[in-house]
Write a protein that binds this DNA or RNA. Sequence first.
DNA 1: TAGCTAATTGCAATATTATTGCATTTAGTT
DNA 2: AACTAAATGCAATAATATTGCAATTAGCTA
Lengths: 152, 152
Amino acid sequence: MHLVSRSSIIALVVRDSIRILQGQGYKATKPRKLVLEVLEETEKPLSPYDIKGILRARGKYLNHVTIYRILDLLCSLNLAHKMLSSGGFVKCSLDAIEGCHRFMVCQHCGAIREFADKELCQEENDFAQDFGFHTEYHLSEFSGLCSQCYRK
Amino acid sequence: MHLVSRSSIIALVVRDSIRILQGQGYKATKPRKLVLEVLEETEKPLSPYDIKGILRARGKYLNHVTIYRILDLLCSLNLAHKMLSSGGFVKCSLDAIEGCHRFMVCQHCGAIREFADKELCQEENDFAQDFGFHTEYHLSEFSGLCSQCYRK
DNA sequence: TAGCTAATTGCAATATTATTGCATTTAGTT
DNA sequence: AACTAAATGCAATAATATTGCAATTAGCTA
């Protein structure tokens, strides 16, 4: 039961991200909106050329250089992340805890989900601290099966 | 105070890794020993071409294709890992817990260290389980400053 | 709303990284 | 020493990433 449509959620999240960009002095350009939309819709790690292909299939053309630069920007602002497993990029959830990003990647359907957990995050930081290591940010990637794929 | 020399430790670790390879039916070839040595000595994430360069500087030549294939093999056996931050490869410590690898990467000196912690690992898996996610393995990467670089 | 300007994008050229099929070599065995 | 499957090297190619500069555009300002 959905109270709001998927597409309206996407539009909302994209708008939020754009607002963050603007808040940092970056412009709300068409290419940036397009890349954010694709990342938000797809929910799977995408390479720059994946994104280019998806957009082209919709009749939208973006130069690959532009996509590289947009992804760099999004990552620098923690609005996107580069995944280890695939090398692809994913959109971060906006409520992710600063400096701590935890992803689960389903080996079967490829879907990724991001989770924020303050406690676990703190514990990990403490753990590092015990080794005299001062953590700036950390990234955790789980690989396995999501609940739906596990049942099959 | 070192009771054993650094180089003898490296030799030992390399030999252990080679033994694991042989145990799985893979041959103990010169190129594989060379790549393992470099990874073990360097303690920093290295790209295939980094490895090629280091070896060439020592008068050893390996084709880059060979290095790619060796790194693939090592990763598939959990003897090496590809790091998120740099995309470079690092040697895994042999005592790392099955399915759970935790690295700390110093942003200043670039050194990486792997840590195994059964409890933290279990906690993370439980956390995933709560979301209905069944973890096959996970990888955690801390980025920050090591104790030495922090003091400066 | 037109015009201005810095930021952003597109383009072309190039560099870097990765992959493939096949001939040659080598480790581990007999 | 000879054999054989496995591993490496080579050449060609594909895919991915980067750079400098010209053209365009978003967000201002008048």
